[in-house]
Design a protein around this nucleic acid. Structure first.
Lengths: 204, 204
DNA sequence: ATCGAGTTGCACAGTGCTGTGCAACGGCGT
DNA sequence: ACGCCGTTGCACAGCACTGTGCAACTCGAT
């Protein structure tokens, strides 16, 4: 017990690698079995259970680490900033930095086997939407640093966000459709006032 | 075989109800078992297999129905509209109409058991973000028909969208962070030019 | 009353996963 | 050389789920 420079090197290193590999593996398949994870970490299933009492404990540790890091980044990004716009911009940038590390996690956490199928078959709709957005960009009606296909993703996820907002009672279902339309147009770079006016005119 | 007004009423009605209930049930838990679905539909597991040869077939049918309806709505919404902004607005409104029916599906399809835990623990971050957004709205820096908490959802999903865009190679990872910041600010109602300038200034 | 499609209840084989127990084996420090 | 900790390999019980087979039942229709 003289050195302890690296903790209990052998075991600690393994625990660390199991966590890292588990992260990568659980993205590719959120239902990855303990055996898949163990094998990917170059270790036997039994060994994983030596470090984590249960599958749930493993995942819990994983989520805790990610959330803690993310939370810290978000707070650090906006610390001592007065202007709300700058605060938002800074925190987004800060979060993005390490979100990049967990990018696969989040993106792939959505790709349930079910979700995968849905997104695939939705491709035609997304392409149509991309076409319209491209039009707008070409004509200068829209303005965005993002290419049309990426904007289509944004549009899609925006709808999801609004649906969740409605589910959680943050927005009235009656209003949500128009709010969604306005927000999407605004995100595409149409001035807020123009977007509001346009949408209002559509539903008389 | 005289009437046939309702098809094979008994069986057809059951098939329909199984599909409807399965939709609702698969949201609450994407891994819902055939037994859970059957029971929820007031029927026995064996009966479900009488209508759909396998679990996958059931889900496939479900997805097909939803996608087809959605696709039609999207196309109908923007049919014969020249102005891109109006086309986007119309199609979003059209999609929203019936997305409302599948709202639970999509929103809850994201709530994997894993995802559920993540979102829960992320609540503090979301609250902080809501605070900043509320500030911006109060000061008139932001402009949106959405309340701050809903905007926080939008911000969160926007990050997800950008992550997916990066994963699919639509945006360079180097640029993505700044694009995310700009797009989020723009969606919140900050004029596109101001947002671009602000973010550019931050990363010198 | 009888036919038949649809439904039910049960039983079964197969599969894949979890969590645990235990004996044997490996290297690293002393 | 010895001991210890971590690891390995194997075996096991338990569980939950999927598909399938089959006999019995329940309705509506004729």
């Amino acid at each position: 017990m003289t050195t302890m420079t690296t903790g209990t090197s052998r075991a600690d290193a393994n625990r660390r690698r199991i966590l890292d590999v588990a992260l990568a593996e659980l993205l590719r398949d959120p239902d990855a079995s303990m055996d898949q994870i163990a094998r990917a970490a170059g270790v036997v299933r039994r060994t994983v259970y030596g470090h984590f009492p249960s599958r749930e404990a493993l995942i819990s540790t994983l989520v805790d680490e990610a959330v803690q890091a993310l939370s810290a980044a978000h707070a650090a990004g906006r610390a001592g900033v007065r202007d709300p716009a700058e605060a938002v911009a800074r925190s987004v940038l800060a979060v993005w930095e390490l979100a990049d590390r967990y990018r696969l996690l989040i993106a792939l956490a959505q790709r349930t086997v079910t979700m995968q199928g849905i997104r695939e078959r939705l491709a035609p709709v997304r392409e149509a939407a991309t076409g319209v957005l491209q039009n707008g960009l070409d004509q200068g009606v829209f303005s965005s640093p993002l290419p049309a296909p990426a904007l289509a993703y944004v549009q899609e996820q925006m709808l999801v966000a609004l649906m969740e907002a409605v589910n959680d009672g943050l927005v009235a279902a009656r209003e949500a459709g128009r709010c969604a339309a306005v927000t999407i147009l605004t995100a595409a770079g149409v001035p807020a006032s123009d977007a509001t006016e346009l949408v209002a005119k559509l539903n008389d």
